[in-house]
Amino acid sequence: MNQFGILFHKEWRENLRNYKIFWIPIVFILFGILEPVTNYFLPQLLDSLGNLPDGAVIELPVPKPEEILQAVIGQYQLIGMAILILAYMGTIAGERRSGTATLLYVRPLSFRDYFLSKWLMASITGIVSVWLGLLAAYYYTFLLFNQVEIIPFLQFAGTYSIWILVVVTIVLAASAAMPNAGLAAAVSLALVFFMQIVDSLVGAYWTFSPMKIPVYAVQWLNGEPDLSDYWWTLGIAFAFILALLFFGTGMAKKKASTAKV
């Protein structure tokens, strides 16, 4: 068997036994369901909580189903990304620090396969979680509100999956480059959130940046994004991912000597 297969098997087993492959999707599903449900019960909730004078009626506009899915992405962008980053911050840095990496590094290890096996595992967990979560949100939105067209939904979820790849790649590269899991998480969180803020503040000057993928994903629900901008953004995102994969592999190799002996 090639090293990638051996190492991926190890990652798969590890993610089964530390339950990441179960609880991360479940949490995404939970947040996917919560959004349509809270929106549905919001009027009643306000009614029972609010100390409104008798006879006052709250008139809330019924949200469009597309808006519910957009709000789910809003949740994922905060809590979902934080969970993915925290769950995979130690993938490489943690192995080095605990010393478990030493008995791997002492073999004729392909660091490319080492890095890519971890990247693939985290990507699978992230994408499966997002799809299960969005499908749950889609179903609940359909039951409680109205149906979203299936094709735009697929375009929306598919585009958002590429954003997940960007985030996963950032965490893994940070874990390879940083001396410990905490710093890897800090750098990843800073990159993901800070760059999004920068992009939303001054990003009006450019139309293609990987940070705009979530925005474009949502635009599929209400028509379609500017296709030229869209494809340029995806192209740059893939180049960014590829560059980070090379960087991560290089850092994993360079920092191998910092593993605890």
Binding site: R13, E14, S98, G99, T102, L103, V261
Partner: peptide
């Protein structure tokens, strides 16, 4: 190594 560390799982 002097203190080998293994994946506990």
């Amino acid at each position: 190594p002097q203190h080998p560390h293994f994946f506990p799982w």
